[in-house]
Design a protein around this nucleic acid. Structure first.
Lengths: 217, 217
DNA sequence: TAGATTGTTAATCGATTAACAATC
DNA sequence: TAGATTGTTAATCGATTAACAATC
């Protein structure tokens, strides 16, 4: 049964394109917040206002997977949350490792949003001895020297780099050696990694340049 | 002269599409880092490796504005930096305001990357009295009560929200009332703003969902 | 020269948008 | 019923990709 479903999902026609998946996860975020604000249904136009994705595009993305809405009414937030989570298969627990317990590491690790999406920070590593043993969110900060051992033991596939640029490449190398396949790079460094490892670089300043240009144009 | 240039730039054929602008600013970031690493030239393929943008697309984006490369050699990093900065017109100084001097606010405000791109944090606001008077980066933290006055005085058009979700809408309202037109929302809140204000919501957890899905697919 | 890389064209693909019948 | 909103189609636009002559 499980294998059958797995085979079914791997057939091309059942797989979700990366563009669709990226948009679905943005809808998920809006729905989560809208629910917190006490709403129980939402229209494609409302989701469009918050995501800057066209309302027609949103309806089309959703209708690929089923008829989740009610004409004249909109979408049930609870119902749609379940459907999108099912489509993205993010219901299961994913463990991630955070490297760096500085200001940015603390800000990321202290966020409650990971838990809400089935993601848990399984370990936090730091070289600065004054921070080892303290907590980031609810997780103990571990000595960086134990990184490889802990990553392997806990079978962690996702690493978040919140370290200064000069330390980023070494940390990336260590994570990759321990088996990490997805890296979130919050440093300014350009990382070289093997081709089977995905790097996502996220940077407030680059985002800001985009927005400034949008406005100044 | 200045008015003439302004009229010229507003003609459609001289304006840069938002897609192109977004990609150019990513190239800018890669070039900045490559220069720091001591390189003085770079190929479109190397930029492609770091940005996940196709090398052909990069060459085409650049060739819209001139022939900046040398066949068989690549691009001069210094030369290309100047050209892209000129195209994006980010050479001038832009002032931004940061609201919230917590962990995330400190992490953002303490980054040197803003200065490198001609952006300066002109003011940091905070309601927590224990943080007022301290510094974030090289800027004094100001009492939130002076927000509107300072924003107006310094003619600030860009605001960065690094506050808890429950405080975000009020802070956005105050910034907009003072004249801010671009908001960077690092909180989880969904913000309602007038239609002439642009909101960019950036969220590590949503990014992480994208990446996880890419990998699990 | 030989190898490498740009600048550019042509073909394909996915995203965007407008429009509207279906229906709650 | 009347108003609102979905689900879907068709047309357009921009991004992606492969290929390759030009040329450093």
């Amino acid at each position: 049964m499980c294998m059958l479903q797995s085979a079914e999902l791997s057939r091309p026609e059942n797989r979700v394109g990366v563009g669709v998946a990226a948009r679905l996860s943005r809808y998920l975020q809006v729905l989560t917040q809208a629910k917190k604000m006490g709403k129980d249904r939402i229209s494609s136009q409302e989701i469009a206002d918050y995501t800057n994705v066209n309302a027609t595009q949103i309806r089309r993305d959703l209708s690929k997977f089923g008829k989740f809405g009610k004409r004249g009414v909109g979408y049930s937030i609870d119902g749609l949350l379940d459907e999108i989570r099912r489509i993205l298969r993010t219901q299961g627990q994913h463990n991630i490792a955070l490297v760096g317990a500085g200001r940015l590491g603390q800000a990321i690790g202290g966020s409650s949003i990971f838990g809400e999406h089935g993601i848990s920070i399984a370990a936090v590593f730091e070289t600065d001895e004054s921070k080892i043993g303290r907590k980031v969110g609810s997780v103990d900060v571990i000595d960086y020297r134990f990184l490889k051992e802990v990553i392997r033991d806990r079978n962690i596939l996702v690493g978040v780099l919140a370290v200064p640029a000069p330390a980023a490449q070494q940390a990336a190398d260590d994570l990759v050696e321990a088996g990490v396949k997805i890296l979130f790079n919050y440093s300014e460094a350009l990382l070289d990694v093997p081709s089977d490892v995905t790097v996502h670089t996220s940077n407030p300043a680059v985002d800001l340049l985009h927005a400034l240009y949008f406005h100044l144009t």
